[in-house]
Structures are given as C-alpha cells and as structure tokens.
Amino acid sequence: MPTCSVKGLPSDGGPTNASEKSLKGGDDDMKKTLAAIVTAATALGSAPAWAQDLQEVDVLTPLPRHTAWFPLIVGEALGYFEEEGIAVNLVNGGDLPATAFLENGQVDIAALDPSEVILAEERGFDFDVVYEVMHGAVEGIFVLESNPAESLADLAGTTIGIVGESDRGLLLSALGHAGVSEDDVTIAVLGESAPLLANSLQTEQVSAIVGAISDFVAIRSQDIQIKDVLPPEMGNQPANNFAMRADAIGGENEELVQGFFNAWAKSAYAGLHDLEATRAMVMEADPENWVNEDLGTIFLEAAQDLHRPDGEVFGDVRHDVWQGVIDEMSEVGMIESEVSTDEILNDHYLETANDFDRAEVEEEVQAYKDSM
C-alpha cells in the first residue's frame, strides 16, 4: 500500500586544541555533554560523525523522509549510513519521469516501479534493478470489514470507487485477474477526502475503493474497519525498486554504493525488529503522519509489511514475480517485445547488503530504546 532521529553530529572536524584547553579549565557541563555523546555513539555501534567526511549518495524517491520509508529514518537514527561514510541526499523528481534522472546521471539510485523498469528496457535504456525495496503492492482494493465479498469477483454488478485516475489501471488489471470485465462494474472517481471515502463505503454508494496506503489510513481515520480484496497474485508485486544504470554497477563509486545497500538492509531489519523503537524514530522525523498516534501506528505497521522480505534476503530480486509482471504487461499490450528478467534484475549487491550481524543490530536497537 501506497512512504525520532538522533541529531546528527558535526562532520567537519573534531574538537580543537583550544576547545580541549577550555574543557580542562573547568567546563564540567561541556565535559558531561561530550561524554554522553561518545557513550551514546558507542552504544549504537558507531563512531562520532566528526571523525569522517561524509560523501553524498543521490537517491530519487517518491517521498521525503517519511514513515513509509522508515529504513532511511532508522538508518540515520542509528548511524548506519554514517558508519559507511554516507549522507543520503533525497532527490524529488517532481513531474519528470524518474528514469530521466538515471539516464542523465543526476542520481546514483532511483526508486522505480516495475512498469517503469520494463518499459525503459523495451525503449533501449539499460537500467538494472539491484534491490527490491518493497516486496508487496503499495495499493489495495478496500471493502468494509462486514462486506461478505471474499474476492473482487464478488463485486461484479456494483460501483467501485477509485481515489484518482492513476488507480484505474490497477483496478482494470485486478478485474482481469478475477475474471471480471470492465463492463461488469461502474467506476467512480472519488478524490482524496477521507470523510467522502468513508461515507461512500458506509452508505454503499460504492462497494469498494481502490487506493494507496495513505488512502487506507485515511479511511481508517474515520473509524471505518476495512479489508483488502486485491487478488493475492497482485499483492506480492514489488514496488519502489532501487535501480541503477547498468554501466555504473561496479564502477568508481562501488564501495560507496555497497555501503549504501548494506546500511539500507541493516536499517530495514532494525526497523522491523522493534515496533516501539521504530515508532519513536519516525515520530520525530515525520511528525505530520503522527498527529494521531493510533493512525500513525497503523501506517507504520502497513509499511513494515511492505518492507519485510519473503525470505531471509533483504532486497532479493525475485525473477518469478517479475516474470509475472512482464507477462501481464505483454497480455494487455503495454509492451510489444520480449523482455528477459536477466536483463533487468541484477543481484550484484545483495550479498554485501545482507552481510551484517542481526544479533548485533538487535542489541543496537535495544540500546537506542533504553536511551529513550
């Protein structure tokens, strides 16, 4: 479903000799402050940031530092990116195609949906997905919890609402999976108003609403209990996959990129380990989504489900799932040529990304939690 940091330490040099002399002169408060910083950094398994110069990794994402992208927030809070000598610079693509930023070399890494990757490959762009960020669909088809419908096929003959036109394609694809024709339903565009969405379901103006994770939370904010009837085979489709230019893989920034993916995978694991600790981190970094803590928690738990891998490998590029997406795009005429998963999926970074001690990460999360 459709995205409290520890304050960063300065990275431009350590204490000067003059500062040290001043401390020796009796500034006990400053001594205690520095001691506390060093102790906290040690507990979290990282050195103070002033010990290194951080290099920027430019990453295009659909959202800023946001609850839906909690691994970034967790990684910055626990110092994992900093340990790798990295400062993550998020780039907002605006209305431009995300693929253009990769092609022009404006970003090192871009979060792309499967259709963007596959269409780019058909058009001759050589981009590789090197890490699946979200292992499930970010959209859903929501019906009232009390609705007896068990699948989309049960909604034939009804009116189905879509939040916006961008949701129409998902609905049509889902109808096809369920063996229902577009002519078997009426489609109504509802907009993003939470009260309107909830009322449309409650008064049975629509039998279901097609939307993203934020729409799910919006409906729940109106004290409405809902369930998702998106066909299961569509629910595991990857979203927001980290892609790179193929000619940049193994290039001059190899060590930096390896460090980024290791920090991201470690942060994803840390963010899934303890809900309470993760909640504290994202509440500080993304307060807009935490005005209502109960709804914020619902949002975070939904995001955790998206970032949780199918197996043990974080970021695993699943050829079978991608082949299903390719086949579906071909069937509906979105692509005309054959696209091979070997041409768009690359596991080059997965081994180093997953090379971390999970028990150590759990201890670091606990240390953070103890310091709350």
Rank of each mutant, 00 (worst) to 15 (best):
P231A: 06
N253Y: 04
A239V: 08
N253P: 06
P231H: 01
E255N: 12
V257L: 15
N262T: 05
L275G: 07
G250L: 00
A268S: 15
L272S: 03
E233F: 03
R279S: 14
G235Q: 15
R279W: 12
M244L: 12
Q258T: 04
L275E: 12
F260K: 04
E233K: 11
R279A: 14
K227G: 04
M244W: 10
Y269T: 11
L272K: 09
A265K: 04
G259M: 00
N262L: 10
F242C: 05
N241R: 11
W264R: 12
E252L: 00
K266R: 10
R279T: 12
G250C: 02
R279V: 10
A243C: 13
F242Y: 15
V257P: 02
A246R: 10
G235L: 13
E276H: 14
E233M: 08
G259Y: 03
A243S: 14
T278W: 02
E254G: 07
W264L: 15
A243I: 03
G259N: 05
N236V: 14
H273M: 07
A277D: 11
K227Y: 02
N236F: 09
L272N: 14
R245F: 03
A263N: 10
P232I: 12
H273P: 10
L230D: 04
F242D: 05
N262Y: 03
V257H: 14
E276L: 14
F261S: 07
A263F: 03
W264D: 11
P232F: 12
P231T: 03
N253F: 02
M244C: 11
R245N: 14
